[in-house]
């Protein structure tokens, strides 16, 4: 074990997988200078595996999907979630459908991982602040992961590289320098498994990515008031760990879904629907979503209105308690 930043942990995953698999390659627009410099260590260890691409998001995504179809696992670094729609066809239509089309015909499937930075909070404005997971979660054939902690980032990314399906990995812009103890060597955190990061009995906070850290802050404040919040980090959105979500809410009877998405059409809404359909009898209060506003995201001081804070989560919890 050693303490590692989130960025270094992800780079470690890629470096170790490249050590192991001579066919694993990466393409991205600015690996040496780009968003979060996430993969720098891996690039220094395996410079020949890193293709620096032109500013051609459509072709870059297609490159990854096409190479994957031909047996090469490929990491496509799209830099920003906001740029992914430039390659929407390649992701939602070409990559997502291909295993279904092959129907077992292709022994190496379609092993492509798209990585992009997402999230609000560094004043980057309307074209650099999106959270788009809901779009990708909606498409059958894609898997979606959003690790909140460095140890999960390394293990999940390794699992994503090995999965054989197209996987989208969103990394929040505020997580790059966060640290925790990370195991040495290769390991996998399986896709589709949520983790309880704080146990509690009074309310379940269901979240993913950076907002999980804010949930933990809120839970600490709530504990001082005698309210014990359980914090469930989904880690993977698709496939969703439905059992973990339902079990926790059956236990506590109250659910707040905390996500940095715009409320309308959010994946938080999907989880609300799941709870209404499956655990209605256990609910002591309606499910509440703590999300961000349904407008484009302004920069500078106004952006503060969009950031998820412990206060907003606590307000949401109070609603479930009838306050």
């Amino acid at each position: 074990m050693s303490e590692m930043t989130y960025s270094k942990a992800m780079a470690d995953s890629v470096k170790l997988e490249m050590d192991k698999n001579p066919d694993l390659t990466y393409i991205g627009e600015d690996p040496a200078g780009g968003a979060m410099l996430v993969f720098m260590d891996a690039m220094m260890a395996h410079p020949d595996r890193f293709a620096v691409s032109t500013i051609t998001e459509t072709a870059n995504a297609g490159y990854g999907v096409g190479a994957a179809m031909c047996g090469l696992p490929t990491i496509v670094d799209m830099m920003y979630a906001d740029l992914m729609p430039c390659a929407m066809d390649e992701i939602y239509n070409q990559a997502a459908n291909q295993n279904y089309i092959y129907n077992g015909q292709n022994p190496t499937h379609c092993p492509v991982v798209f990585r992009a930075m997402s999230g609000i909070g560094t004043g980057e404005g309307l074209h650099h602040s999106h959270n788009l997971e809901a779009w990708f979660c909606h498409i059958p054939g894609l898997k979606v992961i959003e690790p909140a902690f460095p140890d999960d980032a390394k293990g999940l990314f390794t699992a994503a590289i090995r999965d054989g399906s197209p996987v989208i990995c969103f990394t929040h812009r505020k997580l790059g320098t966060t640290k925790c103890e990370v195991p040495e060597g290769e390991y996998v955190v399986p896709l589709g498994k949520a983790r309880i990061v704080r146990e509690g009995k009074d309310v379940t906070l269901i979240s993913w990515s950076y907002p999980v850290l804010i949930c933990l802050q809120a839970a600490a404040e709530l504990a001082e008031k005698g309210i014990e919040a359980e914090v469930l980090d989904l880690r993977t959105l698709v496939p969703l760990d439905r059992e973990a979500v339902m079990d926790s809410v059956r236990k506590t009877g109250r659910a707040v879904i905390v996500s940095e998405e715009h409320k309308t059409g959010s994946f938080a809404g999907e989880i609300s629907a799941l709870l209404a359909e499956e655990v209605f009898g256990s609910l002591k209060a309606p499910v509440v979503r703590c999300t961000t506003l349904d407008t484009p995201v302004p920069f500078a001081a106004l952006e503060d209105e969009y950031v998820i804070t412990p206060e907003k989560i606590i307000q949401a919890v109070k609603k479930t308690l009838g306050d």
Binding site: C70, A87, N93
Partner: peptide
């Protein structure tokens, strides 16, 4: 791959060529 999206083969073929 065959494609229902007109022009869809081109980006994929770049990956195939790289492979």
């Amino acid at each position: 791959a065959s494609n229902g999206i007109v022009g869809g083969a081109a980006p994929l073929s770049v990956g195939g060529a790289f492979a």
